[in-house]
């Protein structure tokens, strides 16, 4: 079973985010980049599937040169090979452009299953998986937190939570695109030996032009400006000598001042 996992390199979620001088992008000075937190789960799910059923995992990512570092990390945590779609232009960091480039790179490959993950914790878009599925003409199941192969590996039973406290079970024939939710599989960490071995694994680089894709043409949105959200006015501590007094005062404030009860 050959599994492709589409990953995104994102700034560490602990990073302080500063807006750059152009007022449209972030200042990347000193940012630490990591494999996207959600991608850790999809990558692990991919690796466990091939460990159990044979085959190999290919990690693929779109972005500038620094993305190679994240792909090396994927090679150290179970991927057999990696493909980097190299693009230095940050204005091409657009869901449809990325999905189009990924689809072009994946189409000639041999695969049974493609993983994406919930969303980039930087872009907060959550669109690439479904867009990639559409471009490849494949079924898609989003936000999967449970999966099991069925029908001798020809289908996948997926479980997911949706709004209203409901859980959906969706059976999908392969090949398909599956978007992993946090918690699907517990991610592993690379050992030093894995990191050394990863250096010998193949990492191929392609450009959108080589793939015959017009990335710029696929970009339909343009950022006009980036701002910090409005600051909340400072709050205050609820006064009172005892727990009961404080609680009474809190309920009064919520009713009479905040008017939320």
């Amino acid at each position: 079973m050959n599994v492709i996992v589409c990953v995104r390199q994102t700034p560490d979620t602990e990073s302080a985010i500063k807006i750059a001088a152009d007022g449209r992008t972030i200042n990347t000075d000193g940012l630490k980049y990591v494999l996207g937190p959600y991608d850790e789960y999809s990558h692990e799910a991919a690796v466990q599937l091939v460990e159990k059923n044979g085959g190999e995992v290919t990690a693929i990512s779109f972005g500038p040169e620094r993305v190679k570092e994240t792909l090396r990390n994927c090679l150290a945590i179970g991927a057999s090979r990696a493909v980097h779609i190299h693009d230095e232009d940050t204005s091409h960091d657009d869901a449809l452009a990325i999905a189009t480039a990924l689809a072009a790179a994946i189409k000639p490959m041999s695969y049974d299953l493609i993983f994406t993950s919930n969303k980039g914790t930087d872009s907060d878009r959550g669109l690439v998986g479904a867009m990639l599925a559409e471009r490849l003409g494949l079924p898609y199941v989003g936000l999967v937190s449970e999966l099991e192969l069925e029908d001798g590996g020809k289908a996948l039973m997926c479980g997911r939570d949706v709004e209203g406290g409901q859980r959906e079970k969706i059976k999908v024939t392969l090949p398909a695109v599956i978007c992993a939710q946090k918690g699907l599989r517990e991610p592993r960490y690379a050992s030093l030996m894995n990191i050394m071995q990863a250096k010998k694994k193949p990492l191929e680089t392609k450009t959108a032009a080589e793939l015959g894709v017009d990335t710029a043409g696929a970009v339909k949105l343009e950022v006009e400006k980036m701002e910090y959200p409005p600051q909340r006015p400072p709050g205050r501590l609820v006064e009172g000598g005892s727990v009961d007094e404080k609680v009474k005062e809190l309920v009064r404030l919520l009713k009479e001042e905040a008017k939320v009860l």
Partner: peptide, 9 residues
Amino acid sequence: KVRVTVRFK
């Protein structure tokens, strides 16, 4: 942490 205003091209 930030918010962007986007325009359709």
